[in-house]
C-alpha cells in the first residue's frame, strides 16, 4: 500500500475527505448496467462451465439458532460430495458456520481442501464491544477457522465515525492471524450505493481480504447492482494499491440463474482474474441443490425431482 493510502485513516476528517472524494455512483445508471448484464444468455458449454465454477465458489452456509453438531456434520458431508452419485461434481469452496460449531466442521473437513469459514464479531448486528468481537474471532480461529466473516459497525459508519469502523477491522484482522478476513458491509442497511462504495474502500484500506455484501439476515441482500459496485471497487483498489481483494455476494442467491448472472457480472467488470474461488465466493444455503439439478439436466436432458438431491 502506498504511503498516501495508509495516511488517509489517521483521523475521521482525512478518512471522510478520502471516502467522499471517491467518484459517486449514479443509482439509475448502476441499476441499468446490472440489468443489462442480467440479459446475457449463457447456454450449452458456457452454462456447464458456469455451473461447475459456481459450485466451486459456494460457501455452504448454515447460520441458525437451531444449528447442531449433527446438522454441521451433515452439511460438511454435502460440501465434500455435493452429488454422491456423481464424483465429477466439484467440491464447494467452504462451509460457513457460527464460531461454536467451527470445531465440528474443522474435524469433518480436515485435509479435504474445503475451508471452514466462521462468522464472528457479534454477528449479525455487530452490536457489542470490541473486546467481545476480538474474543469471538479468536475463539473461531482457535477452533480451526480458515476464514472469518466479520460484520462492520453499521451504526458507526452511518454516524460518520469511519475511524471506528476502520480500527475495528484492523483489530479483527490482527485477531485473525493466518485466517482470511471477509468484511461484511451489510449493504441492505447502508442503503445508498455511494455508501456501498465508501464502505468497500474502507474495508479494503483496513486490510480486509474479501468484501462481502450481507449477513443474509437483512433484505435486500446480494443484489446485482450492489455486487457490481463492489466489483468496481476491488478493481479500482487493485489499480491504486496493487493489492487484490475478493468479493462475496451472500443472501438471496437461490437459483442457478442468479449465480450465473453474478459470474457474468464478474466476467465483464473485473475479468477472469476474479473467476476463481480464491477471489469470488457465493454465500448461499439453498443454491447448491439448484446448481446440481441444472447440472444433471444438462448432462441427461431431464430434470430429476427434488428427492434426487440430498437435503443437508
Amino acid at each position: 500500500m502506498t504511503t498516501s493510502l495508509a495516511d488517509v485513516a489517521t483521523s475521521n476528517a482525512t478518512l471522510r475527505t478520502f471516502l467522499h472524494g471517491l467518484p459517486g455512483v449514479d443509482r439509475v445508471g448502476a441499476d441499468q448496467r446490472a440489468a443489462m448484464l442480467a440479459t446475457r444468455s449463457i447456454k450449452t458449454t458456457a452454462k456447464a462451465q458456469a455451473i461447475d465454477l459456481a459450485i466451486g465458489m459456494v460457501d455452504l452456509t448454515t447460520l441458525e439458532g437451531a444449528d447442531t453438531p449433527g446438522k454441521v456434520r451433515a452439511m460438511c458431508a454435502k460440501a465434500l460430495h455435493p452429488d454422491p452419485a456423481d464424483p465429477s461434481v466439484p467440491r464447494v469452496a467452504a462451509v460457513c458456520v457460527y464460531p461454536d460449531l467451527v470445531a465440528e466442521a474443522a474435524t469433518a473437513l480436515r485435509g479435504t481442501g474445503v475451508k471452514v469459514a466462521s462468522v464472528a464479531t457479534a454477528f449479525p448486528s455487530g452490536r457489542s464491544s470490541l473486546d467481545v468481537k476480538i474474543a469471538d474471532t479468536g475463539f473461531a480461529v482457535a477452533a480451526g477457522a480458515d476464514e472469518i466473516d466479520m460484520v462492520i459497525d453499521r451504526g458507526a459508519f452511518l454516524a460518520g465515525d469511519y475511524v471506528k469502523v476502520f480500527e475495528e477491522i484492523v483489530a479483527i484482522k490482527a485477531a485473525c492471524g493466518a485466517a482470511h478476513l471477509k468484511v461484511i458491509l451489510e449493504t441492505g442497511e447502508l442503503s445508498t450505493y455511494d455508501n456501498v462504495r465508501r464502505a468497500s474502500w474502507l474495508a479494503m484500506l483496513a486490510g480486509g481480504d474479501f468484501i462481502k455484501t450481507s449477513t443474509g439476515k437483512v433484505q435486500p441482500a446480494a443484489t446485482l447492482p450492489v455486487t457490481l459496485i463492489m466489483l468496481e471497487a476491488v478493481r479500482d483498489f487493485l489499480a491504486v494499491s496493487g493489492r487484490k481483494v475478493g468479493v462475496k455476494p451472500a443472501g438471496g442467491i437461490r437459483t442457478t440463474k442468479d449465480a450465473i448472472k453474478m459470474l457474468v457480472l464478474v466476467n465483464e467488470t473485473v475479468g477472469e482474474g476474479w473467476l476463481s474461488p480464491d477471489w469470488f465466493r457465493l454465500g448461499a444455503s439453498t443454491l447448491l441443490n439448484d446448481l446440481l439439478m441444472q447440472r444433471q439436466k444438462m448432462a441427461t436432458g431431464r430434470y430429476a425431482g427434488p428427492d434426487y438431491f440430498t437435503l443437508d
Binding site: P23, G24, V25, D26, V28, G29, A30, Q32, R33, E232
Partner: peptide
C-alpha cells in the same frame, strides 16, 4: 470531473 465515473463510461 465530479461525474459518477463508471456510469459516465456506460453513458
Amino acid at each position: 470531473e465530479d461525474a459518477a465515473l463508471d456510469q459516465a463510461v456506460e453513458g
